[in-house]
Design a protein around this nucleic acid. Structure first.
Lengths: 334, 334
DNA sequence: GATCACGATGTAACCGGTTACATTGGTCGT
DNA sequence: ACGACCAATGTAACCGGTTACATCGTGATC
């Protein structure tokens, strides 16, 4: 393997001069610079970045903890992360944690063992043990999408409560009074906030909450399919269903049709996320569009600000959402 | 930062003893082992893996070059990669290349600069310059899913020709004679092989090839939607369309319905991949199921075999596929 | 009792860069 | 002519582990 010493020998200079030529060319004389660069070429020398990183105590790698990469929404967030990281000269270590805390902790230890500089956590959970860092040190992490209420680090989120209120209000505006909801996982702040927004809208319209219209789900099409099954087979099915993710909405529509009902003729369905398939579903999905790629880009930007100590204090960003009305919601049948 | 020297001092032994206690505990006496382990605990010592990797010239990281992470099929492959890599003690550096050669080359250089040990390439392209490695050295890469014909490394693929033949034969068996095809990108071996399988089936059934029924696509729902538009607005639209990906099939179905036609009543549609949404589309998609996660797992296994020099010679694996018949294909209207 | 083998531990070189500090030689001012 | 100063370069310590080799003590063997 060609290393800096070989190049130095070849160029007839010291290793320091080679290093300087490559790192700060302006402080070596043009003559030696040329000699060195020619030797670098001749030897096909590429610095061993492992050594550079080891010496500089910086890996320029970021760990991304994603609950499930199979979710199209996260796939978009990751695209944004990737793009911004590449642009800033950082690499991305992607970790599919399936929401398991042990797995998250394992990957987070990439930071404590110096294999990565920081973590982007897409789930509401702090994967670091309490004593992982010296007190006073800012946590090398940002928390995006699903965020902790009292996150000890920068966060980037949507106003989920407001978004859910907007969707529900849209359904109420169409004339719906019995509105079901297919929720996300019980523990998730997303579920809690969206549920609160749903409540807000019902309350504002003077509609009493019917707990039995709330079904649990886990964001997958399968769970939407199953939850819709329980709603549809009731004696008094709702006339509209708000799903906390497009994937669940697509599963729900499939189940509703299977029961011989039409969307939106018999039941309106609204989703959340605006994934690519939302436009191609039949009918196209009314949903909340999230700036998924922006989540990723911003997360990287904020994390690097922390890592490179440009951040004065802990920032919290709220990104904009938009209600996108398509064909899956309509006035209820009389 | 606590390092091995602090621990050694604390335990009253040499750094070598600490290192040995952690790496091969059996060669130190139980007495010192206990002393050292206690010191490790007390100091909260975690080895700096950066240093370990630097010394051992092994990073235990794998680079994955994925054309687009937004594709649900690749998301599944990546899950498999992730799982197997974690199990084998390797990390995954995921790189969304968007099929750009320059981006691929940049990420591939993570290997030449010793930031990663090997590459899993999910596109038919060799991202390394010809002189990146000494002649005779096996290329630290495996090529999966879309593979090069003369790959200089292990490959894992599907028998795409046979799979496409099976789908087309299924459509012919239902009575279709005018079968359109929405293809993948022109340069891709996948496109070529699947097209060949389509030809095979037509030829075996004595159906003449109609070039005008072949439309280009790029695997996205959008491209399927557009391609279906050109097929559907013809004077003599096909009675069936074979799409080279489920995502395109879902786009195509959306466009066919928009034209006032029914699936499969007027036009049957078949896809390829069997993504999660395939079951929930309306109608559910007939498609070719690929063992996506197995692609990922096997790619990791074969790459590690190369890296750890267990592989005698270059292996090529062909994974099984399965025709899954659902509601989107049926006998053509009389 | 001297020799030897062996287990346990210490010493220090090494991986491949970066960089503080030392050294050299030349220019400039007085 | 002499010292101050500066630009250009070299020397070597350092990052934090691993490991070849040296050393030491103990018990077995002859």
């Amino acid at each position: 393997m060609t290393n800096i010493r070989k190049v130095a020998e070849l160029a007839g200079v010291s290793v320091a001069t080679v290093s300087r030529t490559l790192k700060s060319p302006d402080i070596v004389s043009p003559t030696t610079r040329d000699k060195v660069l020619q030797a670098v070429n001749e030897a096909g020398y590429k610095p061993n970045l492992m050594a550079v990183q080891f010496r500089s105590r910086r890996t320029h790698n970021l760990v991304v903890l994603v609950p499930t990469i199979a979710n199209t929404f996260f796939a978009r967030v990751i695209s944004g992360i990737q793009e911004e990281a590449q642009h800033r000269g950082y690499g991305v270590l992607l970790c599919n944690t399936l929401g398991r805390e042990a797995t998250e902790a394992m990957y987070a230890s990439l930071v404590t063992t110096r294999q990565a500089d920081g973590v982007i956590q897409l789930r509401a959970c702090n994967p670091f043990p309490a004593d992982a860092f010296a007190p006073g040190t800012p946590l090398p992490m940002v928390n995006a999408c699903e965020v902790l209420d009292d996150a000890p680090c920068p966060t980037i989120r949507l106003d989920n409560r407001e978004a859910a209120r907007a969707v529900t209000e849209h359904l109420i505006g169409l004339g719906h009074r019995r509105i079901g909801m297919i929720k996300g996982p019980r523990r998730s702040p997303l579920t809690r906030d969206r549920l609160a927004g749903y409540h807000d809208a019902l309350q504002a319209a003077g509609i009493a909450l019917d707990e039995s219209l709330l079904c649990p789900g886990d964001f997958t099409p399968q769970s939407g399919y199953e939850a819709a099954g329980t709603l549809v087979t009731r004696d008094d099915p709702p006339t509209a269903i708000f799903c906390e993710s497009d994937e669940m909405a697509i599963g729900a529509i499939s189940r509703i049709k299977q029961a011989g009902l039409s969307v939106p003729g018999d039941i309106s369905v609204a989703g959340f996320d605006d994934i690519a398939f939302a436009s191609y579903s039949d009918p196209p999905l009314t949903t909340i569009a999230q700036p998924a790629e922006a989540f990723g880009r911003q997360a990287v930007a904020m994390l690097i600000d922390v890592l490179e100590e440009r951040a004065r204090d802990i920032q919290h960003a709220v990104l904009p959402h938009e209600l996108v009305i398509r064909g899956s919601t309509a006035t209820p049948a009389a």
